[in-house]
Design a protein around this nucleic acid. Structure first.
Length: 127
DNA sequence: CCTATGACAGACA
DNA sequence: GTGTCTGCCATAG
């Protein structure tokens, strides 16, 4: 990443991920949107790719929009699933997570990037 | 500067 | 519900 400045987006991504409740999962796109830019889903993945950034974060609660673990089993996916199951997240046949049950809140307009500023007060504070 | 890559997501067959 | 293709954008080479 571009060193030189903390990159506010990255900072926000970390805050969002930290706000994901235990036993819930959020998609990369959702995290990106809540962090201020819905098109940065791939960058959220990139950020999580950096171990120094994901340290101390519930990174395992971030999955694809289809409710699937995008991380290959041999590259941490195994670990991710184990952690999620430890939180009570149940996987269906084929490794699909029931987003209806375990998905984090989905605001109506988060897809359009309408939530530029952190609405985490609402999302995380209220639960 | 240009091409390739990626822990994505949406549209479509 | 699955497989492919396209759009997206920061990093890496």
């Amino acid at each position: 990443m571009s060193r030189g400045r903390p990159l506010e987006f990255t900072r926000r991504v970390r805050e969002v991920i930290r706000s994901i409740p235990r036993g819930k999962v959020a998609s990369y796109g959702q995290v990106a949107a809540l962090a201020g830019d819905a098109r940065q889903a791939r960058q959220v993945a990139w950020i999580l790719h950096s171990s120094s950034v994901k340290e101390g974060l519930p990174w395992h609660r971030v999955v694809s929009a289809r409710g699937r673990i995008s991380l290959p089993p041999g590259r941490g996916g195994r670990e991710q699933r184990r952690r999620l199951e430890a939180e009570g997240v149940r996987f269906g046949p084929g490794g699909a997570i029931g987003l209806e049950r375990h998905g984090w809140e989905r605001p109506p307009a988060w897809r359009r990037g309408a939530l530029s500023r952190l609405d985490l007060d609402r999302l995380g504070g209220k639960g």
